[in-house]
Amino acid sequence: MIRQAKTDDWKAISDLMNQLDYPNTESFIKGNIERLLAHPDEELMVYVDEGNVVACISLHYIPQLALPGDIACISYLVVDSTIRNKGIGHKIEEYASKAAKKRNCDRIQVHCHSRRNDAHRFYNRQGFSESPKYFTKLL
Protein backbone atom coordinates (compact mmCIF):
# COMPACT_ATOMS: atom_id res chain seq x y z
CA MET A 1 0.00 0.00 0.00
CA ILE A 2 1.26 3.48 -0.87
CA ARG A 3 0.16 6.40 1.28
CA GLN A 4 1.25 9.85 2.31
CA ALA A 5 3.90 9.74 4.99
CA LYS A 6 3.03 10.73 8.54
CA THR A 7 5.25 12.36 11.11
CA ASP A 8 5.05 9.13 13.11
CA ASP A 9 6.89 7.38 10.25
CA TRP A 10 10.06 9.29 11.12
CA LYS A 11 11.98 6.34 12.59
CA ALA A 12 11.37 4.05 9.60
CA ILE A 13 12.19 6.86 7.16
CA SER A 14 15.37 7.65 9.10
CA ASP A 15 16.38 3.98 8.86
CA LEU A 16 15.75 4.06 5.09
CA MET A 17 17.84 7.24 4.73
CA ASN A 18 20.64 5.48 6.57
CA GLN A 19 20.55 2.79 3.86
CA LEU A 20 21.06 5.58 1.29
CA ASP A 21 24.22 6.66 3.12
CA TYR A 22 22.54 9.53 4.96
CA PRO A 23 23.35 8.54 8.57
CA ASN A 24 22.44 10.31 11.79
CA THR A 25 19.16 11.88 10.63
CA GLU A 26 17.35 10.98 13.87
CA SER A 27 17.84 14.42 15.46
CA PHE A 28 16.23 16.42 12.64
CA ILE A 29 14.24 14.17 10.32
CA LYS A 30 10.95 14.51 12.19
CA GLY A 31 11.02 18.29 11.69
CA ASN A 32 11.96 17.87 8.03
CA ILE A 33 9.06 15.47 7.51
CA GLU A 34 6.65 17.97 9.11
CA ARG A 35 7.99 20.75 6.86
CA LEU A 36 7.66 18.62 3.71
CA LEU A 37 4.13 17.52 4.58
CA ALA A 38 3.08 21.16 5.03
CA HIS A 39 4.62 22.39 1.75
CA PRO A 40 2.23 22.58 -1.23
CA ASP A 41 4.92 21.62 -3.76
CA GLU A 42 6.18 18.54 -1.90
CA GLU A 43 4.91 14.99 -1.53
CA LEU A 44 6.40 12.41 0.77
CA MET A 45 4.96 8.95 0.26
CA VAL A 46 5.69 5.62 1.86
CA TYR A 47 5.11 2.01 0.89
CA VAL A 48 3.69 -0.08 3.71
CA ASP A 49 4.05 -3.87 3.74
CA GLU A 50 2.55 -5.92 6.56
CA GLY A 51 2.19 -2.77 8.66
CA ASN A 52 5.79 -1.64 8.21
CA VAL A 53 7.15 1.26 6.17
CA VAL A 54 9.55 -0.44 3.76
CA ALA A 55 10.08 2.28 1.13
CA CYS A 56 9.66 5.98 0.65
CA ILE A 57 9.79 8.58 -2.09
CA SER A 58 10.10 12.34 -1.78
CA LEU A 59 8.76 14.29 -4.72
CA HIS A 60 9.22 18.01 -5.35
CA TYR A 61 7.22 19.97 -7.92
CA ILE A 62 8.95 22.85 -9.72
CA PRO A 63 6.69 25.30 -11.55
CA GLN A 64 8.12 26.32 -14.93
CA LEU A 65 8.16 29.61 -16.80
CA ALA A 66 9.51 28.65 -20.24
CA LEU A 67 8.09 25.12 -20.49
CA PRO A 68 4.43 24.16 -20.95
CA GLY A 69 4.48 21.65 -18.08
CA ASP A 70 6.07 21.68 -14.68
CA ILE A 71 8.88 19.38 -13.53
CA ALA A 72 8.64 16.77 -10.80
CA CYS A 73 11.90 15.87 -9.07
CA ILE A 74 12.50 12.75 -7.04
CA SER A 75 14.63 13.85 -4.12
CA TYR A 76 14.83 10.47 -2.42
CA LEU A 77 13.63 7.02 -3.39
CA VAL A 78 14.63 4.05 -1.28
CA VAL A 79 13.38 0.52 -0.71
CA ASP A 80 14.55 -1.40 2.32
CA SER A 81 17.64 -3.37 1.32
CA THR A 82 16.22 -6.63 2.70
CA ILE A 83 13.32 -6.66 0.21
CA ARG A 84 14.68 -5.02 -2.94
CA ASN A 85 14.00 -6.51 -6.38
CA LYS A 86 10.38 -7.38 -5.55
CA GLY A 87 8.77 -4.61 -7.62
CA ILE A 88 8.21 -2.15 -4.77
CA GLY A 89 10.48 0.50 -6.30
CA HIS A 90 8.63 0.15 -9.60
CA LYS A 91 5.24 0.56 -7.89
CA ILE A 92 6.23 3.62 -5.88
CA GLU A 93 7.93 5.33 -8.87
CA GLU A 94 4.91 4.60 -11.05
CA TYR A 95 2.67 6.09 -8.36
CA ALA A 96 4.88 9.19 -8.24
CA SER A 97 4.75 9.56 -12.03
CA LYS A 98 0.93 9.47 -11.96
CA ALA A 99 0.89 12.02 -9.14
CA ALA A 100 3.20 14.27 -11.19
CA LYS A 101 0.93 14.09 -14.22
CA LYS A 102 -2.01 15.16 -12.05
CA ARG A 103 0.06 18.21 -11.03
CA ASN A 104 0.61 19.30 -14.67
CA CYS A 105 4.15 17.95 -14.87
CA ASP A 106 5.34 16.81 -18.26
CA ARG A 107 8.57 15.27 -16.97
CA ILE A 108 10.03 13.69 -13.89
CA GLN A 109 13.71 13.73 -13.07
CA VAL A 110 16.04 12.42 -10.44
CA HIS A 111 19.58 13.22 -9.39
CA CYS A 112 21.39 9.99 -8.67
CA HIS A 113 25.00 10.00 -7.56
CA SER A 114 27.46 8.33 -9.92
CA ARG A 115 28.39 5.71 -7.29
CA ARG A 116 24.84 4.28 -7.21
CA ASN A 117 25.14 1.79 -10.07
CA ASP A 118 22.19 -0.37 -8.97
CA ALA A 119 19.98 2.71 -8.84
CA HIS A 120 21.11 3.71 -12.34
CA ARG A 121 19.98 0.33 -13.67
CA PHE A 122 16.64 0.74 -11.87
CA TYR A 123 15.99 4.19 -13.34
CA ASN A 124 16.93 2.98 -16.82
CA ARG A 125 14.38 0.17 -16.49
CA GLN A 126 11.80 2.74 -15.40
CA GLY A 127 12.31 4.68 -18.64
CA PHE A 128 14.58 7.47 -17.38
CA SER A 129 17.38 8.67 -19.62
CA GLU A 130 20.59 10.26 -18.48
CA SER A 131 20.86 14.04 -18.75
CA PRO A 132 24.19 15.44 -19.88
CA LYS A 133 25.15 17.50 -16.79
CA TYR A 134 24.12 18.38 -13.31
CA PHE A 135 25.93 21.08 -11.35
CA THR A 136 25.90 21.60 -7.60
CA LYS A 137 27.17 24.42 -5.43
CA LEU A 138 27.33 23.80 -1.71
CA LEU A 139 26.17 26.73 0.40
Rank of each mutant, 00 (worst) to 15 (best):
N32P: 09
G51P: 15
E94Y: 12
E93G: 00
Q109V: 07
N32Y: 10
I71T: 11
N104K: 12
R107H: 07
R35V: 11
G87F: 07
V54W: 02
G69E: 06
A55S: 09
P63V: 07
K102G: 11
I74N: 00
D106C: 12
H60R: 03
G51K: 09
V54I: 02
K101C: 03
R84S: 11
G87W: 09
V110P: 11
K101Y: 01
A99I: 13
L36A: 06
E43G: 12
K30L: 06
I108Q: 05
I62E: 15
I88E: 01
G89Q: 06
I71Q: 10
V78W: 03
R103C: 05
G31C: 11
R103D: 03
Y61Q: 01
D70C: 02
A96I: 07
E34V: 04
Y47R: 06
G87P: 05
N104M: 14
S58R: 12
N85G: 03
Q64V: 06
H90P: 00
R84M: 08
I88Q: 01
C105K: 05
S97C: 11
G87N: 04
K98I: 12
P68M: 08
Y61G: 02
E42H: 12
I57A: 09
L36M: 10
P68S: 04
V53Y: 05
A38P: 04
E94C: 05
H39A: 14
V54T: 15
A99Y: 04
P63A: 04
L37Y: 10
V78S: 10
L77I: 06
Q64M: 13
L65V: 15
K101M: 13
V54K: 13
D80R: 03
L37R: 05
G89V: 09
I74F: 00
L59M: 11
D49Q: 14
S81K: 15
V110C: 09
S75K: 07
I92M: 00
L44K: 08
Q109W: 08
P63W: 07
Q109A: 07
A66C: 13
S97W: 10
D41A: 08
L65D: 07
K102L: 09
K30C: 01
I92W: 00
C73L: 08
Y61T: 04
K98F: 05
A66L: 07
C105H: 05
L36Y: 07
P63I: 08
R103Y: 02
E34L: 06
K98A: 04
D70G: 06
I92H: 00
N52W: 01
I83Q: 03
S97N: 05
T82S: 15
K101P: 01
N104D: 15
K98N: 09
V79W: 00
I29T: 12
I57W: 04
K101E: 02
L77Y: 01
P68T: 03
H60G: 01
K102I: 12
Y76G: 07
E50S: 13
Y47I: 12
V46D: 12
Y61C: 02
L59N: 11
S97R: 09
S81W: 01
C73F: 07
S75H: 10
K30P: 00
L77E: 00
G89D: 09
Y76P: 03
A66N: 01
G51W: 10
Y47F: 10
S81L: 13
I108D: 04
M45E: 08
A38E: 08
D70W: 15
